[in-house]
Amino acid sequence: MTETTTRPLGLRERKKLKAMRHIQDVALDLFDRDGYAHVTIERIAAAAEVSPSSIYRYFGTKEMIILWDEYDPIMLSAFDDKLAAQDPITALREVLTDVITASMFDQDERTIRRRMSYIMEEPAVRAGLNRQADEMALELRTTMARHTGRDPEGLELRVATAALISAFLEAIAYWHATGFRDSLHTIVNGALDVLTRGLLVE
């Protein structure tokens, strides 16, 4: 793991992270039992023993309770670090390997699989994922522009970031569609292999 991924959290950060994990777990239990559409923020708040305003402050929307992933900022920061010496695909591959194969990810894989069902099957959550992907694309373009000197709004970085994000999204969609048969690490690496070699006729 990189230094970024192992930086110890402060007390306030740890408390916030613990609260967000708890709310997400409670919400998933309610969604599993009663269906996503039938569960409100207020019901989640009551079950989690927090105020609705706390949930809005932490997540913003109901779909973000599912989409929130504590590893996203870790991966973005590590990607920034690795880009100083590597090409984007190699950097992303190493970052995802670090996070996906980490023991902390292994401990949370059941939660991630539960989330995937709603991400792939609930239209509102899928729409939220698409918005999140657009935001991520902008962050990646900005990061890559800082390391390469290229225009973050130029065609080259737009295409490159769109390809990276699309590869990852298709990888997790395939992981879900195949019943989590193969490891996510294997599938993501396979998707990045396609980007590396291109669609060549053999």
Rank of each mutant, 00 (worst) to 15 (best):
R110V: 14
E109F: 11
D69G: 06
I55W: 08
L83R: 01
I89D: 03
R141D: 07
A48I: 09
L92H: 03
D98Y: 02
S53C: 06
S54K: 08
F105W: 12
A48F: 08
E153G: 15
R93Y: 09
A47S: 13
D87N: 15
L138P: 01
R150Q: 15
T161H: 01
V99Y: 02
A133K: 03
S77H: 06
A102R: 02
F59L: 04
A27G: 05
M136P: 04
G35E: 13
A27Y: 00
L76I: 05
I65H: 02
A133I: 11
D87L: 12
A124S: 07
G128A: 05
N130G: 14
M136R: 11
E42H: 06
L28Y: 03
L28G: 00
D134R: 10
R93T: 11
E42T: 07
R131A: 13
A102T: 01
R146W: 09
A163G: 12
T111G: 12
A27C: 08
S117T: 15
H147T: 05
I41V: 15
L30Y: 03
L164R: 01
F79T: 00
D106Y: 13
T90W: 07
I112S: 03
E49W: 11
E121S: 15
D32A: 12
A102K: 02
E153R: 14
D32S: 10
E153C: 12
L140A: 06
E94W: 08
E94M: 15
A46Q: 12
Q107H: 13
E49R: 15
E49I: 08
Q132F: 12
A137M: 13
L155W: 12
D69A: 08
A133M: 11
A78R: 00
R131L: 14
E70M: 07
I55P: 07
L157W: 04
A162N: 11
P88V: 06
A162D: 12
T97H: 15
R57V: 09
A48N: 11
E63W: 01
S53Q: 14
R93S: 13
P152E: 10
Y58V: 00
T161N: 01
I44P: 02
V50R: 09
K62A: 02
S77Q: 10
T143W: 01
G60A: 10
E94G: 10
L28Q: 01
E135R: 13
T148I: 06
T90A: 15
D98C: 05
